[in-house]
Design a protein around this nucleic acid. Structure first.
Lengths: 114, 114
DNA sequence: TCAACACATCATTACATACTGATACGATGA
DNA sequence: TCATCGTATCAGTATGTAATGATGTGTTGA
């Protein structure tokens, strides 16, 4: 009755957040918040390269954050669960209050400190 | 009235999620969900090294996800906003349904594929 | 069957960042 | 003041992973 010990649950949760922790993937997900889109439509919406979008979509799909449905030569992607959008909205809300802090968080972006 | 263009908002959101996208930081944050803790208490709760915890706390603090309060030689940390906990809870809920997918997401962890 | 299209995958490069061990800093009590 | 404790910072290393350009795969229409 305990197939996953606490540490593994945390690893999974971290992996889930990592799916959201990239600007390109967020662009893809936010584009999908409105409606299902084909890969080329996502490319157009995000201004990212086709292979880049495909890579991110593969990751998001493997992570279960998006679902895919083939139609002819097109593949439609959509959010797999409304909670994906909710996570993004909650982050947007939180960001409004902590934006200054996030701006200042340069510890791991290496744009200062030495 | 538009100091941040859309791309920058997305970058900030990604950075916020990146604060949650690490198992060690999640351990720290989950420990803080219950109550404010000192650094050494967090070290005990998470089993991480002291310098490692300190580094993560600095990042979390810079990102505005935790708040700090010095008391004598101790520094108490706490979640800066209840929505931080909500994000984690929402992820936990989502994870329950997409766990299989997250398990399979090995694209960027390099444990298979060739 | 062939050409064009939509999408996926691969190898490579470049960079971000998690962790460690050593050390520095600041507060406290003797 | 000095030793100790709690915490922060640093340099170094190792690894993860985002982006690109080239190529592969599968579908459609002529």
């Amino acid at each position: 009755m305990n197939p996953i010990i606490q540490t593994d649950v945390i690893e999974l949760k971290a992996k889930l957040f990592r799916g959201l922790a990239d600007a390109s993937r967020l662009k893809v997900l936010e584009a999908l918040c409105a409606e299902p889109l084909t890969v080329s439509a996502i490319v157009a919406a995000t201004q990212l390269s086709q292979s880049n979008v495909s890579n991110h979509l593969s990751c998001l799909h493997d992570c279960g954050l998006v679902a895919r449905q083939q139609q002819g030569r097109f593949v439609y992607y959509r959010l797999s669960d409304p909670r994906v959008g909710e996570l993004i909205n909650l982050a947007t809300s939180l960001l409004a209050d902590v934006a200054q802090g996030v701006y200042a968080c340069t510890r791991y972006t290496g744009e200062m400190n030495q």
